[in-house]
Design a protein around this nucleic acid. Structure first.
Lengths: 342, 342
DNA sequence: GACTGTAAAGTGAGCGTTCACTTGAGGGCA
DNA sequence: TGCCCTCAAGTGAACGCTCACTTTACAGTC
């Protein structure tokens, strides 16, 4: 787009200096109303819009932050969370005049792919990384001098924002215990998410401990967050000599897999087996048997991450904080007291 | 981040001119291997990374495009599509060295909000707008000189990329007719999507016509794409004197609402009533009764939109094309022959 | 040997802002 | 009246890159 009006052309049109136009654009209070009005008139007469590139050059920062999200074809179920988180972050950033540049990474194939962009070129001021797991490339970004906020967990010394996984899992386990379940099966997640999964596991154990009960041994199996792995996990759990009366899957997709297995094998839910999930995805809510699950505050998670990053950019709050946002237990039709209270 | 190395400092370190460094960065073939190697060594020794701002200034374009997506709290079901579309677009853009700036708009509250950013400041070279509906602000963007590609439908004279809504709906209707259904209820979408919905309706009618049948009158009701509206629509359809034997809802969320109503009212699916949706969301696939639906090529839709936009930016393909991407009928457990073939 | 052509590298301006500093006008006060 | 102070606006450089043009070196030709 050649021939776009510049500050100098606006200045000429308004009969002031370019610096005065700059002051008007940036809301400098020292400009008198008369001059300001003249400049504003010229700006709209010429159709002037400031160039982000010019500003970036002069200020030494781009006022754009990068958002790195995982993108794994198989993990479609996290989409509700991702979209909400993104909009939360975007709105917070927009409110402070920042833009959000999106970069996707295929965790499995090439974890570093999404970072490479930021490594190669200086086009963002900081980064929000969704999902700390499997991000060995994180230290490289820090090395480059980027402020980084992780949505999720990381072992690197970075600001973290994450849901209260332990509290959420505690709430689910407590709910199931209160219904009278004792043999509670757990479908745990994959190694990439071990920090979040460990927190959820702690929550489950704490619920048992608080109820002065021992967590039943041998009722924990592992999935990889996919529907299919939940389905397989149900098979394994129900084949045990003493199968569980309730299954708590560490995400909704696996919980739906468990539910499907129950349907296929003539088990009623919640009659024979109660099922609970985690994430409160639309698939869990809108199904024929709505799932008890834990709702994350995805929008606020994104919003908060953006706030922290902006504070880091402003030099405020240089501490690498850990922010935990409460989850909410959503009790639905998939959980009920066990047939025979033990 | 002050004191970052620049082209000139790299040039000094390597004992060449800044222009030679520029040539190396941009892969100019006229640089001899010896010099190139020296420059590359200096670049990594100093940790040099080009400044996107400087390049944007000098080139007069930012090499970033904007992606505008709708964000309506109630419309969570489109998330699968959105994420896939975004990753498709992002990967295509990244492959050509472009960045993708995200902007969300709340269609209902303030349709123009997402555009304002691009109106106020010159920070992208072009725009991809997801969902043409309700975008009265589009002409303003064109007026500003942005190349725009719409994913969806628009009445403005812009490049469009959209799924084959007519063909997809045709496939569903044909499938239901082939099963023996004649009284096929349709749960249509909201006015904002009227162009897409009209295409789907044409598809349904064409299927009837091709089968030398008359579309049954009075079996079309309207929803707003939400689960609740699908639920209500089922109520209305089934209260008719001659209720449908199959219901085709124009998105999955409404189809799931229909399914729920059937469950609550003792109708078996697909025994008493067949149900089909549109979009092939995870909620439809992973439910207890997997839904027959139409899968969109969301990733390719995004990828294609990005390609077209990049071509527009290159001055190639100045035509405002309309690109249609086939959908795929996914037949699942929610559709079967009617109990009594009429 | 002088001339031309070409490939490789260098020079300097310019892109549109902001920053640090300077100028100028006007007011208050002794 | 003269001085200083304050507030509003102006001046010019700098930010880091690319573009258009120029220089240099060297080989080929007559």
């Amino acid at each position: 787009m050649p021939g776009q009006p510049t500050m100098r052309s606006v200045a000429e049109h308004a009969g002031v200096s370019h610096q005065t136009v700059s002051r008007v654009v940036n809301g400098d209070p020292t400009v008198t109303d008369a001059v300001r009005e003249r400049v504003v008139t010229s700006m709209s007469a010429l159709g002037y819009r400031p160039s982000a590139g010019g500003r970036a050059m002069a200020r030494g920062r781009t006022e754009v932050v990068g958002l790195v999200i995982p993108h794994d074809p198989g993990f479609a179920f996290a989409n509700d969370h991702l979209i909400r988180m993104m909009t939360g972050a975007e709105q917070e950033l927009a409110a402070r005049g920042y833009g959000m540049l999106l970069s996707t990474r295929e965790t499995a194939k090439d974890p570093a792919s999404a970072y490479r962009r930021f490594d190669r070129r200086r086009l963002v001021d900081g980064l929000i990384v969704e999902g700390g797991g499997g991000t060995a490339a994180l230290p490289r970004l820090v090395e480059l001098g980027y402020p980084v906020v992780v949505i999720g967990y990381t072992e690197d010394d970075l600001a973290m924002v994450h849901p209260d996984d332990e509290g959420g899992a505690y709430a689910v386990a407590q709910h199931l215990l209160a219904l009278g379940h004792r043999r509670i099966g757990v479908v745990n997640g994959p190694p990439e998410s071990r920090l979040a999964m460990a927190a959820r596991m702690r929550g489950v154990h704490r619920a048992f401990t608080d109820a002065r009960l021992e967590p039943p041994p041998g009722l924990e199996v592992h999935g990889d967050f996919t529907f299919a792995s939940g389905h397989a996990a149900a098979q394994r759990l129900m084949a045990l000599p003493a199968p569980p009366t309730a299954v708590f899957a560490f995400n909704d997709a696996m919980a739906l897999g468990v539910l499907r297995w129950m349907r296929e094998n003539g088990k009623s839910v919640p009659g024979d087996v109660s099922i609970a999930g985690f994430d409160d995805t639309s698939a869990a809510v809108l199904g024929e048997t709505p799932l008890t699950s834990v709702a994350l505050q995805s929008v606020d998670l994104g919003r908060r991450a953006a706030q922290i990053l902006l504070d880091l950019l402003d030099g405020k709050n240089a501490q690498n904080t850990e922010t935990v946002m409460a989850g909410r237990l959503m009790v639905r039709a998939s959980t009920a007291p066990p047939r025979t209270v033990i």
